[in-house]
Design a protein around this nucleic acid. Structure first.
Lengths: 340, 340
DNA sequence: CTGAAAGCGCTTACAG
DNA sequence: CTGAAAGCGCTTACAG
């Protein structure tokens, strides 16, 4: 690999001149520019981005940590949508995306801090928000460009974030179901320590309350964020048929599929006897039978917005700010009906 | 952010000593190590990875370009599996994954070369292999650590790659179908310029030949790698019912779903009248009705193997070498039956 | 418009 | 075991 020095020698100029033609923003006479470019051409020169980063203290990359803490993580449609949104804007803006794995939630902020502290990225998008792990606080303390996908714990009210209307959307789902005559409605969440799940629970409770429905403890269930979690939720929520839910709202489509399965095994017809609503509008939703009604959360748009906000802030040398809530949309298909 | 110099000052040692305690491999007396660590602790010091990279000429990151050239790219299960495999090993090996987008196949090798030429990564995993774009050649010419997921064009026989047994697996699928009595079998591929699709076609042809079946041109169709591609393939392959296929093998599950849809609209029952086999064993496959029989390609394992090979080579300062073929496995479910 | 110099924050061969 | 120095490959304020 040739360096700026080789090119300078060949073109008969000072290395700083070569640097100037490649860094763009500098007055260079047309003739020397041409000479430099020609020399670079034959030497197959491309400026070393690492050296440049060291010099300008900017990497033009943003980081993201993927917390593949549960097996289904990559199977769920959240992940590809996240990547799609992030990639779409990093690419358009000439940035790169650095992705690190991590091993459990505790490790997530270790990895995030590591990327930032070691200057491998100019900023970071944080996706998970477990309430018991203070990733955000750590990041804030270090005064580091961060935008959250999801809402931060209350004490960090001023971080930049982008989130779905989890509480509201869930309340609407319950309203919709109650409007159809359902009175025993179950909420099947994933990890109860995550903020999404908490927010949705609030929305559920608010919706039930609004409809004048008393909630039975048995209708609230948490499980693994995958088919099996939903499947088991059916067992746990139907101990006594008299008190069994006539409708389920599940934290993701994978769980909804598990619920569908569990109901089928018990000989319960969907939607005739029991209604089911999933979340995320995953690709399979439209192809199940019955076709699954699902609450579509615009993760791709959220990720794109997060990346945009982050890159904008970096470009202006500031910390990202502002928070945006995205509306979820209920995609009505065939897994819901009114109660007779 | 504090530097090695600040720590040195505080600990009363030379910067090079600080460097030594952080770079690991050096003899340091226990007492000075402790002093340095203590100083680093209070200054909240972490070595700047960029500076280190420049110095040692190694970034500890590998790159991958994702060619999201068609809309369905992120929806297909290939992408998450690829990322899962790559992330799994980069994480375990203390590497980072740098992902770049690209805009069409032509742009792919521009981006790949850019990452490498500018030294942002130590090596790269290349995923797409369009036969008309010589990404591999370009990469080879620059003597750059590369491993391909997929097989390279013949002229680059010596690049390292990891691939599925596309040809063989397809031949087996045809053998299986022929064994069930099918004589008019369709092959519905995606992009005909991609090597996977070519290889599968060869396998298809070989399988038909082996079974003593003459192929009708109409049974070979190419379409967009998504539902719609499959849907349209049904139209095109069933111009005349007399010559219409009784079995379909599709390049991915999305297309198979489109085929299912198209057949249903024509009032054809699957698997009673027509059999359908997809590829990739996507999450939805098991939940369709009929449950879709699918050729499972171990993309996650392939990606992991690619990353491992790449990192091993980098660690030893060599170019990656060797090629491995992974076996696909037919997951039999309910969309296939024998012909009466 | 261009050159010469200092600096970005590390690493490492060379002495001792 | 530790220090002093040179170097990794750029950038940019300062002169002219």
């Amino acid at each position: 690999m040739s360096t700026i020095r080789d090119v300078a020698a060949k073109a008969g100029v000072h290395p700083s001149t070569v640097s100037r033609v490649f860094s763009g923003n500098a007055q260079i006479s047309e003739s020397t520019r041409e000479r430099v470019l020609a020399a670079a051409q034959v030497l197959n020169f491309q400026p070393n981005a690492i050296a440049r980063s060291l010099s300008v203290r900017r990497t033009k990359t943003i980081g993201v940590i993927v917390p593949h803490v549960f097996d289904g993580y990559f199977t769920d449609s959240f992940f590809p949508q996240l990547m799609a949104g992030l990639l779409e804007v990093t690419y358009a803006r000439g940035y790169r995306l650095l992705v690190g794995g991590c091993n459990g939630y505790q490790d997530e902020h270790v990895q995030a801090m590591d990327i930032l502290a070691t200057r491998q990225a100019d900023g970071i998008v944080v996706t998970s928000s477990r309430l018991d792990v203070d990733t955000v606080g750590e990041l804030q303390r270090h005064n580091t460009p961060t935008v959250l996908i999801g809402r931060p714990p209350a004490q960090h009210a001023n971080v930049a974030w982008v989130d779905a209307d989890n509480r509201n959307a869930t309340q609407k789902v319950v309203r919709y179901l109650a409007g159809l005559g359902h009175r025993r409605i179950a909420y099947v969440g994933g990890d109860p320590d995550s903020s999404v799940v908490k927010e949705r629970l609030e929305g559920y409770l608010a919706g039930m309350n609004e409809a004048g429905l008393t909630v039975s403890e048995e209708w609230i269930d948490y499980g693994y964020f995958a088919e099996d979690g939903g499947y088991q939720a059916v067992e746990r929520t139907r101990r006594t048929e008299a008190n069994a839910p006539t409708a389920y709202f599940a934290a993701n489509d994978l769980m909804a599929i598990g619920i569908l399965q569990g109901l089928k095994e018990r000989g319960l017809a969907v939607p005739e006897q029991v209604s089911v609503i999933g979340t995320n509008d995953s690709p399979e939703a439209a192809h199940l039978s019955p076709r699954l009604t699902s609450l579509q959360v615009p993760y791709r748009a959220m990720a794109a917005a997060a990346a945009t906000r982050l890159i904008d802030a970096i470009a202006q040398g500031q910390l990202p700010r502002g928070q945006t809530t995205f509306e979820s949309q209920l995609i009505e298909r065939g897994s819901v009906s009114s109660i007779k």
